[in-house]
């Protein structure tokens, strides 16, 4: 099949970017979306042009490196899917496809579709962990945890940190990402002890990084490749208010 691409090209963090058109033919429906870009890049090299830069690594939907806005949707038309797991059978011959980076103040563009997501690292650094140094752990079966509790914690811990939630939110909020971490850790008995300081610190860090407030539109859940629930945001708000109310 043949596609007409409009791709965001930008030289550096501070330079002005724009949409550039490309025609790509010879696409097979079995190709992944990124393999289609590989094909285009191979042809750009042959023409002596700089390739389209994009982040990607595992290409099996788990590392969270890839991510772009495809026809205005984070990770493209499917739900519960990362860009690398999107295949060309989801597109029609002759279609025009718009490809842009995930956009947010807190995610500056480095070049083309590559962005800087270190703001997520900073949020985790502000408290997204359980303080258990190597050597301190008790025997692992000494604290039984109900099956359902572990499963619920897992659902939250499944976040891959791709940033689709931020990119799709009209306020560029990191509420889904942050709340998933808060839920993961507060549900487990090991993580309860630090929960008050954690939630306050992480929520403040979101603001510091330049993410907006939750827009309550639930758009993030729709685009999340791991289908993380917005109910975690509710839990984050509850934990945050509880922490402030009980603060000495």
């Amino acid at each position: 099949m043949k596609l007409y691409l409009k791709v965001w090209r930008q030289e550096h963090r501070d330079s002005k970017g724009g949409m550039i058109s490309y025609e790509v033919d010879g696409i097979s429906e079995h190709m992944s979306f990124l393999e289609m870009l590989d094909l285009l890049n191979e042809r750009l090299i042959q023409k002596g042009e700089r390739v389209i830069e994009f982040d990607h690594d595992c290409r099996e939907g788990i590392c969270g490196a890839c991510g772009m806005m495809i026809n205005g949707r984070a990770h493209g038309p499917l739900t519960g899917t990362t860009t690398c797991q999107l295949h060309m059978r989801s597109f029609n011959d002759g279609e025009t496809v718009y490809i842009e980076p995930f956009r947010a103040t807190a995610f500056p563009v480095l070049r083309d579709l590559k962005i800087d997501r270190s703001a997520f690292d900073h949020i985790i650094q502000s408290g997204g962990y359980i303080s258990a140094s190597t050597g301190q752990a008790p025997e692992s079966n000494s604290i039984p945890i109900a099956h359902e509790v572990t499963e619920a914690a897992f659902d939250a811990a499944a976040c891959i940190g791709c940033g689709a939630c931020v990119a799709t939110c009209k306020n560029s909020s990191a509420a889904l990402f942050t709340s998933a971490k808060i839920s993961h850790l507060v549900l487990l008995p090991q993580g309860k002890l630090e929960s008050a300081d954690r939630v306050v610190s992480m929520v403040n860090q979101m603001d510091t990084e330049g993410f907006g407030h939750c827009s309550n539109t639930e758009a993030c859940e729709v685009e999340c490749p791991q289908e993380i629930s917005v109910l975690h945001i509710g839990r984050m708000n509850y934990e945050y208010n509880k922490a402030l109310a009980l603060r000495k």
């Binding site: 079966n141 945890i145 090991q190």
Partner: peptide, 22 residues
């Protein structure tokens, strides 16, 4: 042996049986 202990202490949600054990 110690690795499983360490991971559980960090909050790794390993699968559990209905009784709560790993």
């Amino acid at each position: 042996l110690a690795l499983i202990d360490q991971a559980v202490a960090q909050g790794v949600p390993f699968a559990r049986e209905y009784g709560g054990y790993l």
